[in-house]
């Protein structure tokens, strides 16, 4: 049984900003389904098995791999939003 999929944000270090596509390819080979390569920020987002985090972190140029946070606003009729 594979590990359930989790959503990750992968932060790329300053030295690899010019090679984001190369880093993205290596992440794909490590089991990540890449959704977005954000060129201005040097961040790559997508999904991967929850237990794939160590292998994603091992990809050259990757400085941080974090499970995505979820934001939720109160309903529109709340007094405080």
């Amino acid at each position: 049984m594979g590990s359930p999929l989790a959503r990750f944000s992968v932060t790329v270090d300053d030295g690899h900003l010019a090679e984001l596509e190369t880093v993205a390819s290596a992440l794909r080979e490590s089991g990540m389904e890449v959704e977005r390569v954000l060129g201005a920020l040097g961040v790559i987002t997508g999904q991967a098995p929850a237990d794939a985090r160590p292998s994603l972190l091992a990809v050259p140029g990757v400085t941080s791999v974090d499970e995505q946070l979820r934001v939720a606003l109160p309903p529109p009729d709340s007094a405080v939003q």
Partner: peptide
């Protein structure tokens, strides 16, 4: 519904 995650926000 007022919800979102890092992927869309970072984009």
């Amino acid at each position: 519904a007022g919800s979102g995650d890092d992927g869309g926000i970072l984009a």
